[in-house]
């Protein structure tokens, strides 16, 4: 009897430990971070697409809550600014991160709501030290395959995205070359002014869309 009790206790304990390890493992690989977030994000978008003519701002908030934790927006901003980041003081860096994040949020969250049932499949994951590249493919309704690669780095207990490349073209690389060409001939304050103007335009067009 004693044996049976200890055996069952052992089985239960090992089950708990293995499920805990599995849950931890699921959180920790770059593939799981990406595919888990994609799954949660698509759920929000599918719910939003069911309710036409409704205000999507609530869904936008929900989507952002799901996406934001897996992006390191400070690293994204630092990489986008490139070598000019080193010339900025803390206050300028903070201001840039804030404006740039708002722009990214407005551009890409809005675009997400044009989702119309595209499929997203995992291709491969390449880990080199504390960096990783997760390759995925978006399959459109017309069956066209678009490669989307996520570049990630390891933080203390998770993986975070710092760049996304569509068909091999890095979004951060693209912003970096644009910002660098502006900063070659203009000051940092001019860049911030331009970014704020852009942000204003984006918000205006969003409000027009609502009306």
């Amino acid at each position: 009897m004693k044996n049976i009790i200890s055996l069952s206790a052992f089985i239960v304990l090992s089950f708990i430990i293995s499920s805990l390890l599995l849950a931890q493992g699921e959180e920790k690989t770059p593939k799981n971070v990406i595919m888990g977030t994609v799954e949660r994000g698509l759920k929000v978008l599918k719910n939003a697409s069911l309710k036409e003519n409704e205000d999507v701002s609530e869904y936008k908030k929900k989507l952002w809550e799901n996406i934001e934790p897996i992006f390191d927006l400070k690293v994204v901003s630092r990489r986008a600014l490139g070598r000019y980041w080193r010339q900025c003081d803390d206050k300028q860096r903070e201001e840039f991160t804030q404006v740039f994040t708002e722009i990214l949020k407005n551009i890409y969250l809005d675009k997400s709501f044009s989702y119309s049932g595209e499929e997203i499949i995992f291709i491969r994951e390449d880990i080199q030290g504390n960096r990783s590249k997760v390759q995925t493919e978006f399959i459109t309704k017309e069956n066209k395959k678009i490669s989307v690669d996520f570049s990630m780095y390891k933080t203390e207990n998770n993986w975070k995205i710092y760049d996304v490349a569509i068909e091999g073209v890095s979004i951060i690389g693209n912003y970096r070359s644009q910002f660098n060409s502006i900063l070659n001939n203009a000051s940092f304050n001019d860049l911030i002014k331009k970014l704020k103007e852009k942000k204003g335009k984006l918000i205006k067009s969003e409000q027009k869309g609502k009306l």
Binding site: G82, R131, D163, V169, S170
Partner: peptide, 20 residues
């Protein structure tokens, strides 16, 4: 395209971010 990191690549290191 130069970056902002303080870490400089040493001989034999690998540059991780590339565009094909």
């Amino acid at each position: 395209s130069p970056g902002a990191s303080d870490i400089i690549l040493k001989p034999g290191d690998t540059l991780f971010d590339t565009e094909p």
